[in-house]
Design a protein around this nucleic acid. Structure first.
Length: 423
RNA sequence: CGGGGUGUCGUAUAACGGUAGUAUGUAUGCUUUGGGAGCAUGCGGCCUGGGUUCAACUCCCAGCACCCCGACCA
């Protein structure tokens, strides 16, 4: 992508009302645009990140046998009356609308809808297990939207629902999803801590949250530094200084952000909504369910909260909008212009994603400062100075040192030293 | 939803009961190319409504918006 064509605009200063790190940097770097409190539009750079995260999620969902569907955002009141949630619990935060006598709401979650779909097609134990997920914007009337992408009224979510013929089968899959979630967060550059939390109206048992340590977070967890143990402070019986029940390590309390959560729904919804199957013993039984949420747009905010410095964002390579920022300096020099164009084409042939700062009449300082703000993993500078030595300069955003690399060795260098993901 | 705060060019800010200034941005020209470059000229603004007043961007009231704290958060 030629930067001269990219729709983006950086700001030297963040709007004064933005206090969270993620919103400040994402706005300043031109990734997102604020429509209103808790509602954001994604600009080209931001959307690329969103799509990268969705891609990771789809790959990991596929690995655990989940099939993608897309349910409607508009949901009818009568389904929500079956569970009594139309005006209780999460129904309270639903955006509702009315046409004549017909009432509908924008989906804040989809347990009712998925259970309705599944109960009509699942008849036999042979139809189970079944794993369905979707990636979709959810709507919730948050009493207090805040912290950039961390708490929104409209936000991207991946919600997975699993259906089983037995508790054991469900538990097995619950663990499978846990592992998949760890992989997803890791690929997003996040170290997540499996944390016990309250049943939140779904179950009397504990549920599990995937918490990421961050000062900008609104949750607090009591956790073992080796991650053997972690509890949301809401339910924690242990406290800072106590010993980890597993490894005896000293527990700590820290702020964190909930990036995902998984719930054993058991038969709560299948009971309320009459979702049965016929088991091999010929008896009609309730379907055992689990649901598993992941805040797709929130993850972007979390990544920025965790990966940044005073100059800007530091994208983990797998979610970066582009992998390489190619920056010619002294572009008015015919030699730099010609050689950088060629390098741009050569790198593209390698299926690398390049943001090529082909802007003329832009000073080096401005290009470099913007590059740090946008935060692509690899910066390659080509200039008269480097060309004199038949080199380009390679710098990783997360590192300080700058390496001069012979042009002929560049591809090899990128492959062996940086291990870029080819697209 | 309770409490607090803030609304001035796109962004960040200043001042003032009587002509609204600066920086940045942006446009044009010249000069310039390794950490948001220089000079010149131009563009661009007082959240909305009511009240007080000869006169309101300024004071008062209401509304709206945004931010912060709390409550809430499958």
């Amino acid at each position: 992508m030629r930067q001269s064509q990219l729709f983006y605009k950086t700001l030297k200063r963040a709007p004064k009302d933005e206090e969270s790190i993620n919103s400040q940097l994402l706005i300043r770097a031109g990734f997102i645009y604020k429509e209103m409190a808790g509602v954001w539009s994604f600009l080209p750079l931001g959307l690329r990140v969103l799509r990268k995260i969705e891609k990771i999620i789809r790959e990991e969902m596929e690995k655990i046998g989940a099939q993608e569907i897309l349910m409607s955002v508009l949901q009818p009141r009568f389904l929500w009356e079956e569970t009594g949630r139309w005006s209780k619990e999460i129904g309270k935060v639903m955006y509702k609308t009315q046409e004549g006598k017909k009432e509908t709401g924008l989906g804040p979650t989809h347990e009712e809808m998925i259970t309705d779909i599944v109960r009509k097609s699942i008849k036999s134990w042979q139809d189970l297990p079944l794993y369905l997920y979707q990636i979709q914007n959810k709507f919730r009337k948050e009493p207090r939207a805040k912290s950039g992408l961390l708490r929104c009224r409209e936000f991207g979510m991946k919600d997975l629902y699993s259906f089983h013929s037995s508790e054991e089968d469900f538990r097995k899959y619950y663990d499978t999803v846990k592992k998949a979630y760890f992989r997803i967060f890791k690929r997003c550059g996040l170290d997540s801590i499996l944390t016990e939390a309250s049943g939140a109206g779904f179950t009397k048992e504990i549920t599990h949250e995937f918490q990421v340590l961050a000062d900008g977070g609104e949750d607090r967890i009591i956790y073992c530094p080796k991650h053997h143990f972690s509890q949301n402070k809401e339910i924690a019986k242990l406290k800072t200084g106590d010993k980890c029940p597993i490894c005896q390590g000293v527990l700590k309390e820290e702020k964190s952000i909930e990036a995902g959560n998984i719930f054993p729904l058991e038969t709560k919804f299948s009971k309320q909504m009459s979702a049965f199957f016929t088991d091999r013993d010929g008896k009609k039984k309730l379907i055992v369910m689990g649901c598993y949420g992941l805040g797709v747009s929130r993850i972007i905010g979390v990544i920025v909260e965790v990966h940044h410095d005073q100059f800007g964002i530091i994208w983990p390579k797998e979610v970066a909008p582009f992998q390489i920022h190619l920056i010619p300096i002294e572009l008015s020099s015919p030699r730099v212009g010609k050689d950088s164009e060629k390098l741009y084409r050569d790198l593209q042939k390698e299926n690398l994603e390049i943001l090529y700062d082909d802007r003329k009449n832009v000073f080096p300082g401005e290009k470099l400062v913007e590059a740090d703000l946008i935060g692509l993993p690899i910066r390659i500078v080509i200039s008269e100075r480097t060309l004199k030595r038949d080199c380009v300069e390679v710098k990783e955003r997360k590192k300080k040192e700058v390496k001069l690399v012979k042009r002929g060795h560049l591809l090899q260098f990128l492959k062996s030293n940086i291990k870029l993901n080819y697209v």
